[in-house]
Nucleic acid binder design. Sequence first.
DNA 1: GTTATCCATAGCGATACAGTCATCAAATCT
DNA 2: AGATTTGATGACTGTATCGCTATGGATAAC
Lengths: 117, 117
Amino acid sequence: MDSVEPVSAEVVQQVAEYFSVLSEPMRLRILNFLREGEKCVQELVEATQTSQANVSKHLKVMLQAGILSRRTEGTSAYYSVADELIFDLCGLVCDRLACRIEAQAQHFRNFSLASRS
Amino acid sequence: MDSVEPVSAEVVQQVAEYFSVLSEPMRLRILNFLREGEKCVQELVEATQTSQANVSKHLKVMLQAGILSRRTEGTSAYYSVADELIFDLCGLVCDRLACRIEAQAQHFRNFSLASRS
DNA sequence: GTTATCCATAGCGATACAGTCATCAAATCT
DNA sequence: AGATTTGATGACTGTATCGCTATGGATAAC
């Protein structure tokens, strides 16, 4: 068992698409606002400072990816996070990025030509 | 503590870029081959059935993202995974996708018009 | 020196997607 | 009914990038 099993093209495709949804800053910003709980489109427009059409498009992408859920009330549409996994993923990535920066800082510290005992 | 802290634009950007690296099927395929260990470019070309130029480009993207490390020996360039986090991330996403499909199957099963005690 | 091999990179065409503007549909209010 | 608000969608533009072909550069083999 020293060889890695080949992964089907479809699985690779789906995983790539999942990551693709998270690869847009505006979508991550929207998701971050949705951590506070359910929000309607207008609230997200005000929070993100972009056009309403743009917010709607991004919400649609995440909805179809199964990351968000949608509920309507009157003329308003309320969105909430349906897949909490995304927060775990973002947390892991943020931790890793932080570790890299800390390691980078350490490289600077290690360059002390005068060795302090 | 009922409000989510705003995340800086730069952090969001970096996280998005990290996910962006993982959002290409060809890169995921290459990473999957690299699970077996260090590989040179030529080996990856044969494994992925694409052009050598294409493989080199993808390797460069992942190298600059800090996901791979590079070592040269003669005329060959050997790449290996420098950030094992990607496998955790892929694993989490795969699990989630599998769960969804299982849930979908369950929806079909639940549609038994005749309730079997 | 010449040739062959391995890898990186520039140029190119095609495709995909973010963002904007304009419009439309549906529900609410006057 | 008319006006307003809310959200979704189509058309369009600019940008990014995937994959290909061709080329260059560096090392190894003849």
